[in-house]
Write a protein that binds this DNA or RNA. Structure first.
Lengths: 145, 145
DNA sequence: CTAATCTGGTTTCGTTACGCAACCTTATTC
DNA sequence: GAATAAGGTTGCGTAACGAAACCAGATTAG
């Protein structure tokens, strides 16, 4: 039977994964964050098959993570740009990047270090914080009933 | 041909997705964070086929996100527990949850609100911060050369 | 003006993975 | 000693993935 979908799950993580939880979608979003906008550029940068890319871009547009803009006046030239919803995946992507850097030894020792444009200093590791701003771990949280 | 893998990508996001970037793995990690440890419990909570669960647990153990503990003295009873690497996915899961809560309207209006055990107050949205602790967006960062 | 090229796809087709159900093996319980 | 439970494995049908071919409209080259 079909791959299981989670559109209607009451778990927001499942719903999120339903939209960006496959192998390619988050990578597309990542490259879009780095400035990629065009079909061919995604294709070359990611090394993805055209039909799959087409499908993924379509799904991301459908879910309003990207929107498709007709540039070039009369068709045949488009750009895929992040929506606010898409840009809002920034913490997810960064958290994932930091996790990968920390736990998966890089073949080339070049953990892409992102820096703040204003200060020029590296950004902080993404952390979950309580109301006072103190970092919390999984052991520190609970679900009230 | 086979699904593309990213084991040796020099992109840490791709490497991370290679380990936890499929439909089930992060959900398994999520449930593990909520205390699930046993095969049958994962199976029932997730509604996942046994062979797929078997495969995913195996991969997660292989990637050292979980470790398999033999409880019950002489086999036939195991627990899958998060390693430090696995627990370190906490910010990723939370960021994803918050994104899902914010952008994917829940069928049932019950966004699971996580609270800090000490203060009892809700946790903050996960944010990326610069060295001074100020929130930054995708537009505020760059990669030095 | 025509041919070549670029862009953004769709189609075809073989391979792989997913998902269900059935079966299996080793404890434990009755 | 039979029944049940835990943790898997196996088979099989279907859906998704991936490469390459094909296509159509717009642009550029000659």
């Amino acid at each position: 039977m079909a791959r299981k979908r989670f559109d209607d799950s009451n778990c927001s993580v499942a719903r999120a994964l339903n939209e960006v939880g496959d192998w390619w979608s988050l990578l597309i979003v990542l490259h879009a964050m780095h400035g990629t906008r065009r079909f061919v550029d995604f294709q070359h940068e990611l090394g993805i098959a055209k039909n799959i890319l087409c499908n993924r871009l379509g799904r991301l547009v459908e879910h309003q993570v990207l929107h498709k803009v007709d540039v070039g006046e009369h068709g045949s030239r488009f750009e895929y740009r992040l929506t606010e919803k898409g840009r809002d995946l920034f913490p997810v992507v960064i958290a994932l990047r930091q996790w990968g850097d920390k736990w998966s030894p890089a073949p080339e020792p070049s953990p892409l270090d992102l820096r703040d444009r204003a200060s020029g200093r590296p950004i902080q590791p993404v952390q979950v914080r309580d109301a006072e701003g103190n970092p919390v771990t999984i052991r520190d949280v609970f679900v009230p009933e």
